[in-house]
Design a protein around this nucleic acid. Structure first.
Lengths: 367, 367
DNA sequence: ATTTAATACGAAACCGGTTTCGGCAAATAG
DNA sequence: CTATTTGCCGAAACCGGTTTCGTATTAAAT
């Protein structure tokens, strides 16, 4: 075998510098080089420095998969999300995760799946092939099969959200229930008493908690919530449009509506327009998420904003600590959403019956 | 060493079935098992079937990193994107890439970076550590440093877009120039003659080509394009708002404007409203991308729609073929954007001077 | 009947790292 | 001055796969 010398630096096929080249160059055993690079205690300070210096000069970087074969770690965060559900947040979220991962020299392995079952299968494949050391679980459900899967496979994970059975779970979450409580508080301070709530699918834990926050706000502030004014399973803007229409067509329509998500709330504008109502004066709405689109709505949406990028960053940091062995119980963080006032809510002007009359009148005009 | 038997099936630490367990179970050498699983010619049909059957029963799946150490392939697609630029398309694009990757048993390694230099550094790290076998390059520039990096490192890549120096480049792209040509054609059939063009940053190849398409349309259909009506570097909705205002404030404003991107076109609505103009009657606009938001605009935006998910899927497929050794020249695909008619463009009603007068009048009313 | 070729598998090298273990030399203790 | 410890490094095993090479057995050719 011939060896190619380049300014006394030997390189392998494909120009790659391996630990063997380093060892040869340094006149050390390759095990010694590895130990020096990984700061083992039984390597003297001087050789450790010498090794690291030459390694930097030769631009040596170990192959992640070669390290993994002994360490069992690929330094990668797994993220499997369902195709439709994460759309509006995705870019910020990925930016947060990826940035933190990068600073720790980790990477991010992403997969998308169309259905819940497919998500499980994809996650399983990533586990089996060890494409990731641990997983971030977005959109946790009250009862979440992904958690069972990861628990039984003994793979570290962190939740973006919380769940019912918290055993062994680490998480980062925004206290959406707190935001919903404050939304009620705000609308009541504006004089509203008949307040609707349009929620997402309550099998998701975030929706479950937001509803709890809404109900708690109503009760503690002295109102018995009317079950008829609470709608669930609203996931798209079109759903939100339909649901808003449904509430407004009631005999005693709500004068204000709280939406669990901006996506749903954006449907309110169309519904209001159809009934000749102006959002922000005839009808007050408050929502949650703080999507960019909410600021472009007319009038701008009052919404509780979430720092999605920071969430991604924290989740990545928590997961890495979890993989490194820290206990799940010590890795639980929460944060608050903050009010982003728009012009979609205001002091009560029309009573519920006045609102109802206006709606009837507009319908009459149309026909 | 003790061995744990579970219904005659031996499992390693962590419940993982290795190729050694398989070999032992089958009474074959592990090399033979490997060859059987990889369908080598020197393994008999019968043992090949037997091995695959038992492998499936024992739910064996090889560790991706253990395979990589010999094959040099991790079966992963690399994707590094700049934080702000891909936002609106990201979810669909990732879904397309990921789905195709999954069917080939590949995965997707994603990273985000804030600046162009950081993108290069991140890409280099992924190459050096071999976290990916090849890369998809989104938003290619006319002259793109990422291409130089990958060429010199001899790492396979495919472009989402085209570039100036095509040597060794595979790509998938939508013919945006064709869409811009058709946009001109459509507006001229509506009687418009004074047509503006609001473009993105022309260091991006897509913007470069769209401008060529616009100019070609104007010239071939008999109009000398007015350079004053062509603005570049418009990347955000707010940029689009400012640029639209600038065109409308001219002495002879355009009666129609073509936007290279929906994001820019969405800013036109605000500018038009400020001047008391109605988009779709006083001012016609046509755009490109087909973002979901464009359908929710009022009136809905006429735009050339791109199937982003399919683009991701095709790019993944092309890259995998490229990694497997197919020549770059044989891996070049293009597709067309298709017109998605909204109500933002219509037959000419106001001439340029009438439009100008209306704008002046609205300004006068405001002051 | 002997030689040659084809088939099917085993044994072992190999990939590029990490980690264990053993031992030499210098330093410290007795 | 000897015995023991400590510091520091080399040698080799190891991880779980893939790939090369050699060989026994059987089939085909001479």
């Amino acid at each position: 075998m011939e060896k190619v010398l380049t300014t006394s630096i030997r390189k392998g096929v494909g120009g790659r510098v391996t630990i063997n080249h380093l060892a040869e160059e340094l006149g050390l055993a390759k095990g010694t080089v590895s130990k020096a690079l990984n700061s083992y205690a039984d390597i003297s300070e001087s050789t450790r420095r010498r090794v690291k210096k030459i390694a930097a000069e030769m631009d040596y970087r170990p192959l992640a998969y070669a390290q993994a074969i002994r360490t069992g770690r690929v330094r990668s965060i797994g993220l499997v999300f369902q195709t439709e559900s994460e759309r509006p947040f995705l870019a910020d979220f990925l930016a947060g995760v990826s940035q933190t991962a990068s600073t720790e020299n980790w990477t991010l392995t992403v997969a998308t799946s169309a259905s819940e079952e497919e998500v499980l299968l994809t996650t399983k494949r990533l586990i089996d092939e060890r494409k990731a050391d641990g997983f971030i679980l977005p959109r946790t459900k009250v009862i979440d099969p992904r958690i069972d899967l990861l628990r039984s496979a003994n793979i570290p994970f962190v939740l973006w959200g919380r769940t019912k059975d918290t055993k062994g779970c680490a998480w980062f979450d925004i206290l959406g229930e707190d935001a919903m409580y404050k939304a009620v508080e705000r609308l009541m301070s504006f004089g509203h008493r008949r307040i609707g709530f349009i929620n997402s699918d309550i099998s998701y834990n975030f929706a479950h908690l937001r509803q709890i926050g809404f109900l708690k706000g109503m009760k503690e502030l002295g109102i018995v919530p009317d079950e008829e004014l609470i709608l669930g399973g609203i996931k798209t803007t079109d759903d939100g449009y339909q649901a808003t229409k449904k509430l407004l067509e009631m005999l005693c329509p709500p004068t204000a509506i709280i939406y669990a998500t901006d996506v749903a709330a954006l449907g309110a504008y169309k519904a209001a327009a159809e009934f000749g109502l102006k959002v922000g004066s005839d009808l007050s709405i408050i929502s949650y998420d703080g999507l960019p689109e909410s600021a472009y709505a007319n009038p701008p949406l009052t919404t509780f904003k979430v720092n999605t990028k920071r969430a991604g960053a924290r989740l990545a940091a928590l997961l890495i600590e979890r993989v490194r062995g820290k206990s799940a119980e010590a890795l639980r963080e929460t944060d608050l959403a903050f009010l982003n006032p728009g012009e979609s809510d205001s002091p009560l002007k029309l009573s519920s019956s006045e609102l109802s009359n206006k709606i009837k009148a507009s319908k009459f005009n149309l026909t």
